[in-house]
Amino acid sequence: MPDAPVILRHADILAPGECAALTRAALSPARPALHGHDFFELAWVQNGRVRHHLPDGREDLAEGSVICAGPGHLHGLQGRGEHALVVSVTLHPDLVTDLARRHPDLAGRLFWSGAAAPVRLTRDSRQMAELNRAALRLERGRRDALGAEAFLLPIICGLTEEEAPLPAQAPVWLARACAAARDPAVFQEGAAGFARAAGKAHPHVSRSMRRFLDMSPSDWINAQRMDYAARRLTGSADSLAEIAAECGVPNLSHFHKLFREAHGQTPQRFRRARQRDVVQP
């Protein structure tokens, strides 16, 4: 019979009065034993590649992958190659429970999803920079309830804006694929990238998307592409051709069509309006 998993306790990690603690860990390539904890954990892959072991399988995480784990989740992290680095934030259970009480819209999402496995999302390079700045402020600042909440709330706001609006009965693999499809490395491949992230046959993925989201994998992928394009148009001076290629839509005519359907105006007009508003609020 296998050994019972180790359960980590927040009382052993958080000092009296603390509601958050941040650690940076270089991961070993050795396969880890699964562990659980009585607290909530926000963790992200800072560098390299990581294998995330779960009771029912495993998944590979790239730089920018974020996981939200809670009490009852069993998992383990393994480095894949050199320089695998993970940042982990231990969050007091009372802090996270109180946030849900004060913000009912969080029910069924992130830490409060009720899913059998940790929720996973993906941050792009700009969002990772914001996350790391927040982590640095937490390390240097207060870690009581006020400091922990000041760290966590902006992150939660950003994550919930991009979390897949899936019903509770949707399979975990579909939620993970929807989150993974926000990564340019995935959406550049189109529907094939979505199916690969799901780890399921394309027909099964398409049927599940229709059932739970009333859209096709291509619809979801194109929505992520156009969200990314909007951010790039606002925050850079790169050409439309460069941005379209990054989105996996090198045909500019098709890129214009998708963008207008998503945002109601041409990419050029969208860029002029947003960049002007930044300079002249």
Rank of each mutant, 00 (worst) to 15 (best):
2 P>L: 15
4 A>M: 08
9 R>A: 03
16 P>F: 01
19 C>F: 15
20 A>W: 03
21 A>W: 13
21 A>S: 14
25 A>F: 08
26 A>R: 10
27 L>T: 01
30 A>S: 11
31 R>G: 14
31 R>D: 13
32 P>Y: 10
35 H>D: 09
41 E>F: 04
41 E>V: 12
44 W>A: 04
44 W>F: 12
46 Q>S: 11
48 G>T: 10
50 V>T: 12
51 R>C: 08
55 P>S: 12
57 G>I: 11
58 R>C: 10
61 L>M: 07
61 L>C: 03
63 E>C: 07
65 S>G: 11
65 S>W: 06
71 P>A: 06
71 P>K: 10
72 G>Q: 10
74 L>N: 14
74 L>M: 14
78 Q>F: 12
79 G>T: 00
79 G>P: 01
81 G>D: 05
83 H>D: 14
84 A>K: 02
89 V>G: 01
89 V>S: 01
94 D>S: 15
99 L>F: 13
100 A>T: 13
102 R>L: 14
104 P>V: 12
108 G>R: 04
108 G>W: 07
108 G>A: 14
108 G>E: 11
109 R>S: 09
109 R>D: 03
109 R>W: 11
111 F>C: 06
114 G>M: 01
114 G>S: 04
124 D>L: 06
125 S>Y: 09
125 S>W: 10
128 M>D: 07
128 M>P: 00
129 A>G: 04
139 E>Y: 04
146 L>R: 13
148 A>I: 00
151 F>P: 06
154 P>S: 03
162 E>R: 15
164 A>H: 05
165 P>Q: 05
170 A>V: 06
170 A>F: 09
174 L>G: 11
180 A>P: 08
180 A>E: 08
180 A>F: 07
182 R>E: 04
183 D>Y: 01
184 P>N: 08
185 A>D: 00
192 A>W: 11
193 G>Y: 08
194 F>Y: 14
195 A>V: 05
197 A>I: 09
198 A>L: 10
199 G>P: 09
201 A>R: 14
203 P>I: 00
203 P>V: 00
203 P>E: 04
204 H>K: 13
206 S>C: 05
209 M>W: 11
210 R>M: 09
217 P>G: 03
223 A>K: 15
223 A>R: 15
223 A>P: 12
226 M>F: 00
227 D>Q: 15
232 R>T: 01
235 G>H: 13
235 G>R: 11
236 S>A: 01
238 D>E: 13
242 E>D: 11
243 I>V: 10
245 A>Y: 00
247 C>T: 03
250 P>V: 02
259 F>T: 06
262 A>I: 01
272 R>T: 01
272 R>I: 04
273 A>W: 12
275 Q>T: 15
